[in-house]
Amino acid sequence: MSDNIYLPEPMRIVRRYDLTEDVRFFQVRPVDMERALKLSYLPGQFMMVSIAGVGEAPFSISSTPSRPGLIEFGIRKVGVLTEQLFKLKENEIIGVRGPFGNGFPVDKFKNKDIIIVVGGLGAVPLRSLLLYCLDNRDQFGKIYFLYGARRPAEMLFRREFLELKQRDDLYCYLTVDKDDTGRWTENIGVVTTLFKKLTNIDPENTYVTVCGPPVMYKFVIDEIIKLGIPKHQILMTLERRMHCGVGKCGHCVIGSIYTCIDGPVFSYWDVIHMKDLI
């Protein structure tokens, strides 16, 4: 990044395809190849993506730093900027700044068991963590991946995750609230119904990461607490409006913290003692 923290760098769209009806996968690469190879980040960090003349917004990184050179996003079409992003084709150029935010403390995860719990669009940032852990498999204990979507068609990276089920070093559990295809072979029910698959958890030695729609948190956290996992070992990523990513514009402030630099990853303990986080 240039030393001007507000200046986007040009990145080229390498690949894009639809993950669901309204969420699109974007794979991008800095136009400057040298920069492309040096760009490092942590799972859980985000970048500010912009189209000059339209605007800028934060998007989680979905790729893993263990596969350098390309950055991936999963973007839902919801408004002005995202609509314009959806109009772009391969080889077109967007502006990107970052990475920003604290990211997941992957160093603390070393030798620990990891449970990744995902709802809906939460798969975007947690895919980064999952791939990172799988690429550095020997550094971690058991890895559980629990992902719930409303319908099979709404599950992001569905094929990729179904393939992961074949690995014997990962517990990959997928579920949908409702199967409207008649061909879904995995679990049916909300994501919390997957928790019964978690047996023999060693709570002191386990980190849990959660990302999903706001309504999901309460139910999922209740289940995690039942497993006896300490509150500071339960991590979640939060969303707020963001216009800078560097603690200046004030839009992401919650009480005494800036979601963009103190977060977006917070522990459940943070959430309890800082108020208004979720």
Partner: peptide
């Protein structure tokens, strides 16, 4: 110190500027 961000674009659609404006919580 809070601010908002707005892009201004010329009618030719390829030139413009990104502005910062005072904002209030």
């Amino acid at each position: 110190p809070c601010y908002n961000v707005q892009d201004q674009i010329r009618p030719n659609k390829t030139e413009g500027k990104r502005e910062r404006l005072w904002d209030s919580c």
